[in-house]
Amino acid sequence: MSTAQKVYTWLDERLGLTGIYNVVLDRKVPKVNWWFTLGSASLFLFVMQGVTGIFLTVYYVPSPDHAYDSIQYIMNGVSFGWLIRGIHHWGATLMVVVVSIHMLRTFYLAAYKYPREVTWLTGVVLFLATLSMGFTGYLLPWNQRAYWATTVGTEIPGTAPLIGPLVTRVLRGGADLSAVTLARFFSVHIWFLPAIIAATIGIHIYLVIRLGISSIPDKDD
């Protein structure tokens, strides 16, 4: 037995790598088409957003005095800062597109039906969390577009009867958009939502592996 094999056996005995391989990778799945790649594509985009986002936090400052300038610095001063921000910016758009089409594919091929109802539920959570990421991330550059879009965006729930004004206050952290709003949008964007998304992706993928990829329905289904 070579050294590499010995190391592998040692690890396998303790980590159960062969078991993971058998369950996760070596499983049989029905023949499906290219539309079925969008789930993993969504995961890929989430990871890209996570990686570029982490790099952006190195220089980004979530305060009204410095947010705009810190992004100008990322774009003009930091090596490849423009690339990281560009990927993060377009990644958001692409992720909304890919996640939406993934969801429509699930709907049109009836993949949300028995036994995959819970997978669908977690999927809806992921879809809404993705949109919320878009909404909270939009404010962070603290430019005119961001400021006024968020002003209007946080006004919208305020029109709801009874609890509306309270919701707007909670979203803004006060009567108007301020440093508090930016701080909480930042926090939600980089901690709350990613944590929710990561956990939900875990459940989603566990269910996909447990139940198998749905097959394409034929005329008898």
């Binding site: 009204p64 690339l83 550059p141």
Partner: peptide, 15 residues
């Protein structure tokens, strides 16, 4: 997209 389209530069927020 990041290289050839980029991100449009917007003026700073002005309440």
């Amino acid at each position: 997209l990041a290289t050839f389209v980029g991100v449009a530069n917007e003026p700073k927020a002005d309440p």
